[in-house]
Structure formats: structure tokens, C-alpha cells
């Protein structure tokens, strides 16, 4: 069997590795150390073994936050990926419209997370917010502060508004990389619009869509600031996602041991799901490479 990689390239990423070692690996090691101990401050620690992990895995609070998080990420991916691709397909390919569209699409991405939360917090208010006031005037009883469904809809729509642009821009970059000859060949063959999308555009967008799915999954699974600013995790705990629950545990209750155990489980879930997404989405490519087809 052939050796697949040139390992000398690793020397080029050595500086990044060193930076990551200090910014990620050492903190991760510290979290592991905290997860098996208890502390009351003053840098004093007491051995707790696997107690925090056992308690966490039996905790209804953790299970509920995890299911909310999974549901949120699933909704985000199911809406943002197809919508982003659809927008990319509708974006102009030449002329002055290209620049205008690109700038408009990039705008939501430039707004900081806490500002997005604040914008939607005001936007959704029934008394002074445009969205809340308009919906209430139309006869809908909309109140994201007290109604669970309204809170969820608002958070999902807010995230769609904030991040669909990223998917659209990535998909657009993928579309722009397709040579015109492909479309000419498709026209000569009399291919339908759907066939062109399914057999030319979608396969050519595959690489950027893998990046889009991974980025959107990891980001939505770690979402904190926007829902925290908008609903604070409420009404009740209905929008308390894992990250919000983790911060409550670590900083609100100062339970650093249990919070560290939760961080590790959280990290392992993200790691597993990201690996599954990546593996499933790149398997065709590996199979093609093995068969020698492009």
C-alpha cells in the first residue's frame, strides 16, 4: 500500500500546533483535572473520582438541555442548508448585482452575537418592537418572554437570519467555481433545471457544503450569547441550551467539578457528531479516489 501523506508538511503547521497547545490543550487538560475533583476556591482540591460524571449522566436537567440542544441544531441545519443553497442559486452571476448581493449577504455576519440578541430582543417586543407589535396587531398572541413556542420560533428565526448568509456565500463560491462548459454540455443534452442542479451543481458544491454543515452544526451546538441575551434561557428552562446550563453551573453555582464533567461530555458529543458528519459526507470522495475517478 502507498503511503498517503507527506509528513514533512507537519513542520509547517508546527507554530499553529504550539499556539493551539497553549490555547486549547492545556485548558482541556485542566478541565479534565477539575472534572475528577471538588473545590471550594483558594486553589484547594479534593478527589471526587467519577462522581460528577455519574451524577451528570443521571441528571434530568442535563438530559433536557441536551435534547433541546440537539433539536435546535437539527432545526438550524434543516432550515439553513437548503435555504442557503436556494439563495445561492438565486444570486446573480454577473453585473452590478453581484457586489450588492454579496455585501447585503455579508452584513448579518458582521454583527456581533450579543448585538444580534439585543436587536431581536427589541424587535420582538410587543410594545415597541416592529415584529412583536405587528404580529399582535394582526391578531397573533405573540410573546417570546412568556410563550415557549414563541421563544423557540424567535431564536430559530434569529439564528436563520444571522447565519444563513454564511451557507449562501459558501454555496455561491462553490457555484462560481463550476466552468461554463458544464452548463453548455447540459443545454446540448437538453437537461432539465432539476437535472442540472442534481448532477452538476450539487456535486460541485459538495466540498463547501461539508464545511457549511460542520461550521453550522458546531456553532449551533455551542450557541450561547444570542439566546442568553434574548430569553435568558426562559420561559422557565425552555430555551436553556447546554452552553447556558453549563455557564449557570460553573459561574452561577460555582460548581466547577460538575461543570468540568459536563464540559467534557459536551466536548465528546460535538467531537462524535462532527466526525460522523465529516466521515459520512467525505466517503464518496474517498471511494472515488480509490477507484481513480475524479
Amino acid at each position: 500500500m502507498d503511503k498517503p501523506f507527506n509528513n514533512k508538511a507537519w513542520f509547517l503547521v508546527l507554530p499553529v500546533f504550539i499556539v493551539v497547545a497553549f490555547s486549547a490543550i492545556l485548558p482541556l487538560m485542566t478541565v479534565v483535572n477539575y472534572s475528577v475533583q471538588d473545590t471550594f476556591g483558594n486553589n484547594q482540591f479534593f478527589w471526587a473520582g467519577t462522581t460528577w460524571f455519574s451524577e451528570l449522566l443521571a441528571s434530568d436537567r442535563f438530559h433536557e438541555a441536551l435534547w433541546r440542544q440537539l433539536l435546535f441544531s437539527a432545526l438550524v441545519l434543516l432550515i439553513q442548508i437548503p435555504l442557503g443553497v436556494l439563495i445561492a442559486l438565486c444570486m446573480p452571476r454577473k453585473g452590478w448585482g453581484v457586489s450588492v448581493t454579496l455585501v447585503l449577504m455579508a452584513l448579518p455576519l458582521l454583527i456581533p452575537w450579543n448585538v444580534v440578541g439585543t436587536i431581536w430582543q427589541v424587535f420582538g417586543r410587543g410594545d415597541i418592537g416592529l415584529l412583536g407589535y405587528a404580529l399582535n396587531s394582526l391578531g397573533f398572541s405573540y410573546n417570546y418572554v412568556q410563550d415557549v413556542e414563541d421563544a423557540w420560533i424567535t431564536i430559530v428565526v434569529m439564528d436563520v437570519w444571522h447565519w444563513t448568509s454564511l451557507v449562501a456565500l459558501l454555496a455561491y463560491a462553490g457555484l462560481r467555481s463550476i466552468p461554463e462548459a458544464y452548463y453548455q454540455a447540459a443545454r446540448i443534452d437538453g437537461a432539465s433545471r432539476w437535472s442540472i442542479f442534481r448532477l452538476i451543481q450539487l456535486p460541485k458544491m459538495k466540498h463547501v457544503l461539508i464545511i457549511a454543515v460542520l461550521l453550522r452544526f458546531m456553532d449551533s451546538f455551542m450557541i450561547y450569547t444570542e439566546p442568553f441575551v434574548l430569553t435568558g434561557g426562559g420561559p422557565g428552562n425552555s430555551t436553556t441550551f447546554l452552553s447556558i446550563d453549563l455557564v449557570k453551573l460553573a459561574l452561577g453555582q460555582f460548581d466547577l467539578g460538575p461543570a468540568a464533567a459536563m464540559s467534557i461530555v459536551y466536548f465528546l458529543i460535538i467531537l462524535l457528531l462532527s466526525w460522523v458528519f465529516y466521515t459520512v459526507m467525505t466517503q464518496d470522495e474517498d471511494a472515488n479516489r480509490k477507484e481513480g475517478t475524479p
Binding site: 487538560m29 483535572n33 477539575y34 475528577v36 486553589n43
Partner: peptide
């Protein structure tokens, strides 16, 4: 490295 709260068990694990 005291801030990292090392124990011999976790040190063994990482080693």
C-alpha cells in the same frame, strides 16, 4: 502548574 490542579491519576492518563 498548580492552577491546572493535577492529580497523579490524570497525569498518568495524559502520559
Amino acid at each position: 502548574f498548580a492552577w491546572m490542579a493535577w492529580t497523579w491519576q490524570t497525569a498518568t492518563f495524559f502520559t
